[in-house]
Amino acid sequence: MNINKIDLNLLIYLDVLLRECNVTRSASKLNITQPAMSNGLKRLRDLLNDPLLVRTSEGMKPTEKALRLQPVVRKVLLELEEALQPEANFNERTSTRVFRIMASDYAASTVIPRLLNRLRENAPGITLDIMTPSDVTFHDVEAGRIDMAINRFEELPQSFHQKSIWLDDFVCMMSSDNPLRHNFNLESYLQSQHIWVSKTGFGVGVGMDPNDVQKLGWVDEALQSIDKTRSIRVFTRSYHTAMHLALEQDLIATLPRKVAMINRNNPDLAIIEPPFVIPKIELKMIWSSLLHHDASHIWFRRQVIELANELKKQI
């Protein structure tokens, strides 16, 4: 095939079609008509001698050849976009940009308040749009509809850029009036009633089963490794709710240290080291290759990392 026959528009069409797998949505993304998008797909099929997208019971799916072409086309377009990008500095003092962030409850409790304070001082016109994990998908991040996702991720698509924000360990929080605080060991921990807090990922969550240790997360997996289990009285998806419930004299919340330290000056709550080893968790931020070279996004990522470094020195 003669490469001279390929124009830039066709590469752009192919990139969007393989991301959306839908002609109508692709046309909308490119602000063209559906017939124009359909014609572009026909030209691509003729040019590459492959259907590229085939209809299945689950919608349009890319062919093997399309899957091989997708990262190559994306790389070419990104490099071209970077080369054509005008040299311009981002002025945070005058910017009115909206940054859309998917943040887990853990991230929203620890990172976002400090980030907002930093922006209030240095970039007063910038707005944050905070979304929960159930609001978005990996596809939203990949397409650049979400500027950043901040969470603990077990697996990530290779197309994402990522940066570790910090590692965090665990502490136990209980009422200052809880008699166990004066005789706190593994035996008394296991005899107590506990508050479970969700580890959140993408997608809408479902109800919890106290017997399904594999889905309970870090604390219960650590207990399982020493052949122990705890009695969970309350399941919650909110760290702030967990800390409030820890005021009850018969409940214990085991949660990441940086969350617990939000209440370190509350005389009604005691923060104690756990009586067993719990592996540390890693908080990451991820973003799309489409935003990687954007000047405003580079500045914003730097703000998150700088405040995270400041917090690591404080706690």
Rank of each mutant, 00 (worst) to 15 (best):
N4G: 14
R25A: 15
P35A: 09
M37R: 06
L48F: 15
V54W: 09
R55I: 05
S57H: 12
K61Q: 15
E64K: 14
A66L: 09
V72S: 11
V73S: 09
P86W: 07
N89G: 09
E92F: 11
R97D: 03
I112A: 12
L116V: 11
G125N: 03
I126G: 01
I126V: 14
I126T: 01
T132P: 00
R145N: 13
A149N: 04
L156K: 14
P157K: 10
Q158G: 05
F160V: 02
H161W: 03
S164H: 14
D168R: 00
D169M: 02
D169A: 04
N178W: 10
L180E: 06
L186K: 09
L190G: 01
L190C: 04
Q191Y: 02
S192N: 15
S192L: 07
H194T: 10
I195P: 08
K199F: 04
D209K: 07
D209A: 04
W218R: 10
W218A: 09
R230G: 03
S231C: 15
S231W: 03
F235I: 10
T236M: 06
N263D: 10
N266M: 03
N266A: 06
D268Q: 15
K280S: 07
K280Q: 14
L290G: 03
A295D: 07
I298S: 07
F300D: 10
R301N: 15
V304K: 02
A308E: 00
N309P: 00
N309K: 14
K312L: 12
